[in-house]
Design a binder for these strands. Structure first.
Lengths: 250, 250
DNA sequence: AACTTACTTTGACGCAGATCAATTCCGTGG
DNA sequence: CCACGGAATTGATCTGCGTCAAAGTAAGTT
């Protein structure tokens, strides 16, 4: 799967996250119309498989609402999440026949899809789309590599802080956070502890313990299990060991 | 940096790994000539920095000979290699101003470069190049994500086996391995123990210990510190915990 | 041949995070 | 309202890998 770093939120239609004009601001408008014609929606329930690794992929698309995850699994069951698809993120691989990872609906999910072959044909006709997709894919590659540093070198506490910082940043850019006058940021955790563990290469117990520790140290405040308030985003990012000012991740 | 998954080895010129006709088999030949015109070579010694993270990138190119690594570093010095550039791999990010990672010559290195702006102009003129680069970048993304599984979920022994399997496979595709009649494969390890550790998210001591263990168990045979013989590639891949038949990595 | 320097191996020990095991929390439906 | 079940917490213990330290190896230099 290609994923994330959307074609950005549709301005004209709050149902569909793909702002076609962002894909290709310089294309002839009839191409854009054609894109509109081959569009359709798919819904998934939390926990449902969207795509199995190795399956034939006959569509590309993007997330309208909900969260999906890209996951790799070893025969013995160990799993690693390799990407998180938030609303506006792109899924699919122009030019590829089969899916490389499992895609799972983490929450209830709505996707806006395009049949792959017409999309690809259009890509061939309109060069700016390939250029835009290249741009997006490079962003994803950056994100994946930033995540490699997290997985390979960070401590459990730093990993949790990194993930929270990323979600806070991403949610902020989608205006999903509450930002109080004192600068604190609040958001809803979209992942179970287990999903976080799979993303971070940890166990769910370690995730739980580190969240408790961050809470005890006042880095975050929890209301219920899922509602997180970050009093000081700077502090959280220090905890994450982040040099990267605001490197875009996921 | 974009990297790896080359524009493949030049057929006409063994000096230059970029087979321009592979980039764009369908372009007009004068475009290819133009690419030839803006080409130049750069040499680096082992250990030299090719590019600093954050620096302005004014060229793209590919590795002719030697090995380079893409590395991320935290302020406290922890480092994670996020990519390995072998001969024929591509470096550079069309459409990006600055480098996202350090690029370091792991061995003596020769690169074939193109000044970035003419290359980009050409990319705009010849759509197949953007499509080819998209293809390559998607491959890299797959590789990065496969590596996330290695970093997040595999044991030290599996990590080492994974790395050796990848190098063996990569070298084989470049005809750099010796393949004996009994099916064993032999190659030269291009990395120090420390570099391997940085790639695998381990310490050099653990790398050394696991290599000794694999040797003791007959999975590999060492002649000197660097020359590796793999009697049974299947066995090595089992040790790597590899489901992926032959997923391209690095 | 002796010295230097960088790389590698091996050992002893400690700790971060995994594993195993009980509760507790909380949302949902009867 | 209670009861049920998945999610989360917390505790006790184990272990793989990191850390610190020392010694071995190989290639280049004088």
């Amino acid at each position: 799967m290609l994923n994330e770093r959307s074609l950005t939120v549709h301005q004209d239609c709050d149902q569909c996250p793909i702002r076609h004009r962002a894909v290709c601001a310089r294309c002839e408008s009839d191409e854009l119309e054609r894109l509109e014609e081959i569009k359709y929606y798919r819904k998934f329930e939390a926990g449902q498989m969207v795509i199995w690794s190795g399956d034939k992929m006959d569509f590309v698309g993007s997330v309208v609402s909900g969260i999906a995850s890209l996951t790799q699994t070893m025969e013995d069951g160990r799993t690693q999440m390799v990407g998180l698809l938030l609303p506006s993120d792109f899924v699919g691989r122009p030019g590829r026949l089969t899916a490389a990872y499992d895609v799972i609906a983490t929450t209830d999910l709505v996707m806006c899809c395009f049949r792959k072959s017409p999309f690809e044909e259009m890509m061939l006709r309109t060069p700016h789309i390939a250029q835009r997709l290249l741009e997006m894919t490079l962003d994803e590659l950056d994100a994946a590599r930033e995540w490699m540093l997290v997985l390979g070198r960070k401590t459990a506490r730093e990993k949790i802080a990194s993930l929270l910082a990323i979600i806070a940043r991403r949610d902020a850019s989608l205006h999903m956070t509450t930002r109080a006058q004192d600068g604190s940021v609040a958001f809803e955790l979209p992942l179970t502890r287990e999903a976080m563990a799979d993303y971070l290469g940890l166990t769910l117990e370690t995730v739980s313990r580190q969240i408790s520790a961050l809470k005890k140290d006042g880095v975050i405040v929890l209301a219920g299990k899922r509602h997180v308030t970050v009093p000081d985003l700077e502090r959280l990012m220090e905890e994450a060991g982040d040099d990267t000012d605001g490197g875009m991740l996921v």
